[in-house]
Write a protein that binds this DNA or RNA. Structure first.
Lengths: 154, 154
DNA sequence: GGGTTAACTATGGGATAACATGGGAAAGCA
DNA sequence: TGCTTTCCCATGTTATCCCATAGTTAACCC
């Protein structure tokens, strides 16, 4: 599970350390690195480990072959994602198109989202966080009812 | 279940012993430690074990993948939490931002809240307790009827 | 029952390892 | 060849591991 928020520096070569917690989360998933793509919901990146991509693949296979949503997801996620492997110290180097899309410059904010994570520019993130916090405060009742635990469905 | 209230010391390194009862509660949940986050209801911390986070995750997954509410909750809940693992004697070290948010200094009060727990500064807790007591006195009728047990929703 | 042991708890401090980061050298690609 | 990317080593800081102590509770046994 990806949790917590970490800000790391981007060096002159475009390299950034992936938070150690995140590296631990994807370790043992096969590919020693992360998959990252440009979000279609705003100026930030989304990413996860190999298992996440496999989950998306399974979900997409449940859709009709020519469902427009299916081809859109295929193009955006599989076509737009890039496999970034860790170097020996746990860094990845972000392609220029990704830096541009997210407005990244000197620093990158990694936000754990449970099954996946997001990468933001610090300034953009600070603005977004204000909205998210007030939204969560105002709507927390939507989560108030404990959901059924896994295995209790039957 | 997290019950009872315990006050433990915070040492110069920011370490604090998690009450043994609480450690027993989360043992066997997978992650050997606790998840802690800054409450957005006041100057204190909230926390729980891995199972609690999974409950939140399940509740969030009932929403549509790109529902704005869903991403907001994911950012606030998972992004705001931190996984703190126990050392060999059952301590965790609280990040500075957490100490600041809760006004923690020399001591931390762990309060069992059933499925989760709270961490307060002793002074702030004493003040809050006065309010809680009078509120409980005024609203005791609300507790008369037992609530449904988990799994009885249907 | 009284007294002793043994386990566990909370805490302190020093040594050690891990993390994020910078720079240079080698290897790929045009 | 010129440029970019990947690999490898070096560094300072921070966190974490590991030991030791002391007080408390529980267990035990004569």
């Amino acid at each position: 599970m990806f949790v917590s928020t970490t800000t790391n520096g981007i060096d002159a070569k475009g390299r950034v350390s992936v938070p150690a917690d995140f590296r631990a989360t994807v370790s043992g998933q096969g590919f020693p690195g992360i998959y990252v793509w440009r979000s279609f919901n705003g100026p930030f990146l989304e990413g996860g480990g190999q298992r996440l991509l496999e989950d998306y693949s399974d979900a997409i296979e449940d859709l009709d072959p020519y469902d427009p949503a299916r081809t859109a997801f295929e193009r955006v996620i599989f076509g737009g994602a890039k496999a970034l492997s860790f170097d020996s110290t746990g860094r990845v180097s972000l392609p220029k198109e990704f830096l541009d899309h997210a407005g990244l410059d000197k620093q990158a904010v990694f936000i754990g989202m449970g099954k996946r994570f997001e990468i933001w520019d610090p300034t953009a993130h600070a603005e977004q966080q204000v909205d998210d916090l007030s939204f969560a405060r105002d709507n927390k009742s939507a989560l108030r009812r404990p959901s059924r635990r896994r295995g209790d469905e039957a």
